[in-house]
Design a protein around this nucleic acid. Structure first.
Length: 562
RNA sequence: GCGCCCGUAGCUCAGCCGGAUAGAGCAACGGAUUUCUAAUCCGUGGGUCGCGUGUUCGAGUCACGCCGGGCGCACCA
């Protein structure tokens, strides 16, 4: 149980009603505060400070708090007893969860994210979905939920007519071996420009697509090879990013389910034919009254929404999922609103969430367009990040073996890219900038990694393995401040999933590293003696564990040296 | 036209269910190093939280209306 929930439960005992407690923003107001008295005073039309006095009389907290104080308009401030802080911190050393409580009701959650397109390079636009989705999956798992990550790759669609046409006529096998995606893109672009100029070629491309959809063996084989080649490239990226998927069922996996699904929706009256297309109307919903969800085109073709509905149905059935999280950009909000509404009519009762995020902008603050060709590829971003990190490592540690330098550069470079994304609110538009992404100053991954490295360095020099003391002896304010920060880890992690905000964790880790650096400056560890030394070593060990665990939840690794 | 999102320091951004004097980083300036790794720490300056009205003991946070920017709204995904 966290201190926050402990205080809340004591307040509930005293009030007979739930009340909320939060950590204070300012140490002058103690460690935790509640505004319960002011809320109660409002309904009872009483003086808030009077109510606060009454609450304090009934409240039992003297086993871990000093006498609560009434302040301001009627706040009740709690200041933790130092021995309690020391005891709780000591207990964290034996807790593999580091104070993070397991969910009371574990759920089966499917997380849908990344979803790159076959025969197209992954670019910066995929960063957010990929990194955010991975983090949310990691956090949900750590909280005890059962998570299935599923990469719904775009492996089916009209672009394959052109890809197949290009493959048959202009394929360069050497280029394909060297950089498959680049070659596939070249083939697509070449076919596309020819088709634009020549209606006959356009027709041929359409025919190739129809043949593929009809199961023509040659086209099917070409398609399978493009998917395999693309997946190889995706896996290289995911390997570099340290991201794993439990499933990668692409759009094509649901082809056979589309026609039956539409038929079923028609026969049970959920869908209807309108202007030749099959649609679901939401006439009872004012916001969607003018926005039907199309599930079959007038030419018989299926749409994005059709596949998503089939996928949704499959996931609920196969995994008996309680929740599905879609980590997809904000522009698709309407699409998911429609799909979720259709799902509700189909009687699907899962907790379906679209987790939207903002756009990636260029340096000119305009939207980075997908089609305009000049997208920065994800591979380039990750390579540049590692190169920049390598330069810094070389500057800092020229004598280090080259192999170790490269490993550290990877950990730092990839971490910096991830952290740049995760440390800001997901809805904010993101201005893509090498300098910003790869700056290693201030609130960045390297800052947090550096705190960890400093701790590891202490243990290397201490000459002995860490041995947990039976109790902690705290004397300096910086020690107690660090302890209180460490004890908040268990409060922060669950709150992330309230609104899918991993930036809260990033922010916490930054504050923790800051508290540690303050402690590091004020409290010599190895030069101290006796129980002060063992206690400080324990604080170092715990800080390292929380930093390591917290960063791991963000999908970021820590180096031993840097 | 309808809908969604964003607007906080010069720049980039935090601010969770409304809570006390709105916080960081970068940039600027000043200080700390015979180092437990200075990728660090301490300090200084910098704000009509887009504008207005309302609800409230209390509003950056909630409601409504504007302004500005972005995105989406029937046969692409």
């Amino acid at each position: 149980m966290t201190i926050q929930t402990l205080l809340e439960s004591r307040l509930r005992d005293a009030l007979g009603a739930p009340a909320q407690v939060s950590a204070t923003a300012d140490a002058r107001f103690g460690d935790y505060q509640t505004n319960a008295a002011m809320i109660l005073a409002k309904t009872r039309r009483m003086n808030p400070r009077q109510v606060a006095t009454e609450i304090i009389e009934k409240l039992q907290v003297d086993d871990f708090c000093q006498t609560p104080e009434i302040a301001g308009a009627g706040f009740i401030n709690f200041r933790l007893k130092p021995e309690f802080v020391a005891g709780q911190t000591r207990a964290l050393l034996d807790d593999p969860q580091l104070g993070v409580p397991k969910a009371e009701n574990p759920r089966k959650i499917i997380v849908d994210f990344s979803s790159p397109n076959v025969a197209k390079p992954m670019h910066v636009g995929h960063i957010r979905s990929t990194i955010l989705g991975d983090t949310l999956a990691r956090i949900a798992r750590f909280l005890g939920h059962e998570v299935v990550t599923d990469n719904h790759i775009g492996d089916w669609g009209t672009q394959f007519g052109k890809v197949i046409y290009g493959w048959k006529h202009f394929r360069d096998d050497v280029a394909l071996e060297r950089d498959a995606i680049q070659e596939l893109v070249r083939l697509y672009k070449h076919a596309n420009s020819l088709a634009d100029a020549d209606p006959a070629i356009m027709t041929t491309c359409r025919e190739e697509l129809v043949k593929l959809q009809a199961g023509d063996p040659e086209n099917l084989d070409i398609w399978k090879r493009t998917v395999a080649l693309s997946w190889r490239e995706f896996e290289a990226m995911y390997g570099l990013l340290g991201i794993h998927f439990d499933e990668h069922l692409g759009e094509s996996a649901y082809n056979d389910a589309l026609a039956p699904l539409v038929d079923k929706l028609l026969s049970c009256g959920i869908a209807e034919v309108s202007e030749g297309a099959v649609c679901v109307f939401f006439r009872d919903n004012p916001a969607l009254a003018e926005k039907p969800c199309l599930i079959r085109k007038s030419d018989g073709g299926f749409l994005y929404a059709t596949t998503d509905l089939a996928t949704l149905q499959y996931r609920i059935q196969r995994w008996n999922a309680d929740a599905i999280w879609y980590v997809v950009g904000a522009p698709q909000a309407l699409h998911f609103e429609q799909v979720f509404n259709v799902a509700a009519r189909m009687g699907i009762s899962g907790d379906l969430r679209h987790i939207p995020f903002g756009s990636i902008l260029g340096e000119d603050r305009k939207l980075m367009k997908t089609r305009s060709g000049e997208n920065v590829s994800l591979r380039d971003v990750l390579e540049e990040a590692q190169q920049r990190a390598l330069r810094l490592v070389e500057e800092k540690n020229p004598e280090m073996p080259a192999e170790e330098k490269a490993t550290i550069a990877q950990i730092i470079g990839i971490g910096a890219v991830k952290y740049a994304e995760l440390s800001q609110f997901r809805m904010s538009d993101y201005v893509f900038s090498w300098d910003k992404m790869l700056s290693f100053q201030g609130n960045t991954a390297p800052y947090l990694q550096n705190a960890y490295v400093r701790i590891r360095s202490i243990f290397r020099k201490s000459g002995s393995e860490f041995d947990a003391p039976t109790a902690l002896a705290l004397t300096e304010p910086a020690e107690e401040g660090l302890c209180k920060k460490l004890l908040q880890f268990g409060e922060i992690v669950p709150s992330i999933l309230d609104d899918f905000r991993p930036n809260l964790l990033a922010n916490y880790l930054y504050e923790l590293a800051n508290a540690f650096h303050g402690f590091y400056e004020a409290c010599p560890v190895l030069k101290s003696e006796g129980e002060t030394r063992t206690s400080r070593l324990a604080l170092c060990e715990l800080t390292a564990r929380v930093l390591q665990q917290g960063l791991e939840l963000l999908g970021i690794r820590v180096p031993e040296r840097m």
